[in-house]
Design a protein around this nucleic acid. Structure first.
Lengths: 123, 123, 123, 123
DNA sequence: GTGGTCTAGACCACT
DNA sequence: GTGGTCTAGACCACA
């Protein structure tokens, strides 16, 4: 396990997002323990404090809970709350901006619609 | 007359993007002079060095030229080159990521397509 | 049958306080045996050492005694000594701080007095 | 300026609460800059990281904003939002527990009411 | 000048 | 074993 960190974003944020994705994809089940701060620090050659910052953010976001002396555990409902949060964030923040951008740039909407329809068929 | 600067992005980048948008929307016509560094610094309560950095970036991007003793001027063709650049940036970078995100979140594509079609009609 | 432990306070303290409350309320009578360390550890999914620490604190506080080979027992007089201790702790430590807080926050004392009078009548 | 830190609570929390009190009392006006991380670290013989943690918490609590390159500033409305938050926290969380405690301990409410009335007169 | 990030390493309380 | 706190010191981007 080495490091392929994006240099623009702080490592602790990238690490946090990685865990979010793992929860979302099911790689980390609800109730399961996160790998320990020390373990991750070893595996990825990081300072424990850096990892700890990520874990703390996950607690703050309500996805993970700390059990004293035992470690961090994925909360029940974390996956769904994460999914809901990301969906509404996209629909309410990102998508309107995307529409505005498309309109401003006077882009042809046909190929865009086409690519969306392709997704729809696969689903 | 301060301003609401986003805390996450450097002010000089936000300022630069603001000018880009003004060129794109026509608020700043080609051949027109940019407001002076001093003026902007006063108006927005900024350090002149910060404004200067933005103006320099616009020069580097080929949208603006410095005329010694006169100031900065929007170049002929700036609007179109900006439009082309933004269009291809959107289609080649942003849109594929958007599609990926929509797929990951398992979003219903129908309302998204609908909103795109609405834009198409208005254009 | 896990339990909701407060994350900010050590579990062994929370457990100890719980027993104190049970003695105070009469749920644990004087002379009665405390449940065994093993039993509690099983019931609440705790490390036996954690439970043991709580029980030891109760001994240190003079509320409980260890009878070799038999277990831990609530001492005679435990309830009253607990009540006295808590009463004076409240009046000498907690209450003055509460008064200071009410004063600092400029709270209206009338509804507070009202709620106290309601208690008085019921007693 | 030396140190009289409570040993039970992390320094960064005590520092944060100190600033909260300064905002509440008006020692720090709205719009005013907080002393810089480095300055406080020097004055109180602390590591800058420790101070930084406190300042960040104040941002998270919506009392303070960061202006890039300039420092941290008390937000407009910080004082009132702080006051409201503390008042409702007291009335909705602390006070009901206090009442319950008084009832459980069978305390005489007369002297308590008396001390509250004294506050009332002074106000 | 400002705060942000990271490292290396120590010490602590808790389970 | 777990995470939390703190120090000392370095480097960076930003204004």
């Amino acid at each position: 396990m080495s490091f392929h960190w994006n240099d623009k974003e702080p490592i602790y944020l990238q690490l946090k997002d990685k865990v979010r994705e793992m929860i979302l994809s099911g790689d980390l089940s609800e109730g399961e323990a996160l790998p320990s701060v020390r373990q991750v620090a070893m595996d990825y050659q990081l300072n424990p404090l850096t990892v700890s910052k990520s874990w703390q953010l996950l607690v703050d976001e309500g996805l993970v809970e700390k059990r004293r002396g035992l470690g961090m555990f994925v909360l029940n409902g974390a996956k769904n709350s994460l999914k809901d949060a990301e969906q509404s964030a996209f629909l309410e923040e990102a998508w309107p901006n995307i529409l505005k951008k498309i309109e401003n740039l006077n882009l042809d909407t046909k190929p865009l619609i086409q690519s969306l329809e392709n997704i729809g068929r696969n689903a």
